[in-house]
């Protein structure tokens, strides 16, 4: 399979604080990759670098055969990189349906009316249909997280970046979230998923990387990575129980 995304030697610093340190990895077309690491390890910054919200100081990001390092977030979204934010950024004054339409009409570059079908389908799939006409500002935190994923899906992504969307869910909800993400993956979308809820992550991903202090310290089969002594040491108390 062809590489869909490649980061080579990507670095980002804020003053003397290095948040991404010479990071390199590739993602194959159709792959589902999990990302773990302690809080503040630079996982979300990595997403910002891939999606274009933050520009790399050094290194190159290639996506779909082209160099996207210098492209805007909006352009990358239209090229098929959809993302969710760890801290939800809902369009609070718009309805849930309208939130998705922004992604549909702009991220998917189709006339507004042509995005209706897709948005309704995504609302149904993510369980937000009953809330379609509610203001996004009135949603609970869990619903906001689901809205993050739904909006990203409305852009019709080829690569979906999910940033900690399973936290705080009940066992039942977590189960249905995993099923939804498996569905999305099965439809051909490549996925990178940052998650602390390791058992949910391991139910979906085929490969796992570990980030600490902005650098990649492990990359490989999820169960092997989780069982390596070094990772166990960093993750004292967090065991793979999947």
């Amino acid at each position: 399979m062809q590489d869909m995304l490649t980061l080579s030697g990507v670095s980002k610093s804020y003053g003397s604080l290095t948040v991404t340190d010479d990071l390199s990895f590739s993602l194959k077309q159709g792959e589902a990759l999990g990302v773990i690491g302690p809080n503040g390890a630079g996982k979300s910054t990595m997403f910002n670098l891939i999606a274009g919200g933050v520009k790399a100081d050094k290194g190159e990001i290639r996506y779909d055969g082209g160099d996207v390092t210098g492209l805007s977030a909006a352009k990358r979204c239209r090229m098929g990189i959809g993302r969710s934010y760890q801290i939800p950024h809902p369009f609070a004054g718009m309805t849930v349906f309208e939130n998705l339409l922004v992604g549909g009409a702009f991220g998917d570059s189709v006339p507004e009316k042509e995005s209706y079908d897709r948005c309704v389908e995504v609302l149904d799939k993510t369980g937000l249909l009953p809330k379609a006409n509610n203001r996004a500002g009135s949603l609970s935190l869990l619903e906001r997280k689901r809205l993050e994923m739904a909006r990203a899906l409305a852009t019709n992504p080829k690569l979906l970046l999910l940033d900690e969307i399973a936290g705080g869910l009940t066992e039942q909800e977590c189960h249905s979230l995993v099923a939804t993400i498996k569905d999305i993956h099965a439809s051909g979308v490549s996925i990178i998923w940052i998650e602390h809820i390791v058992h949910a992550l391991l139910a979906v991903v085929e490969r796992l990387i570990v980030i600490n202090f902005g650098a990649k310290i492990a990359d490989g089969d999820p169960h092997e990575v989780m069982n390596s002594p070094e990772i166990k040491q960093i993750y004292m108390g967090i065991e793979a129980d999947a």
């Binding site: 999606a51 274009g52 919200g53 805007s72 977030a73 909006a74 979204c77 239209r78 993302r83 934010y85 950024h89 809902p90 369009f91 609070a92 004054g93 718009m94 309208e98 939130n99 339409l101 922004v102 992604g103 009409a105 702009f106 991220g107 998917d108 570059s109 006339p111 507004e112 996004a136 909006r151 990203a152 409305a154 852009t155």
Partner: peptide, 24 residues
Amino acid sequence: SRWGLAMTAIRDSETASESLGVET
């Protein structure tokens, strides 16, 4: 219009608008 979606989105969150494909 479609631009209204973009403008209202920018009003509520410029960051999210950008990452949903809106040229802010």
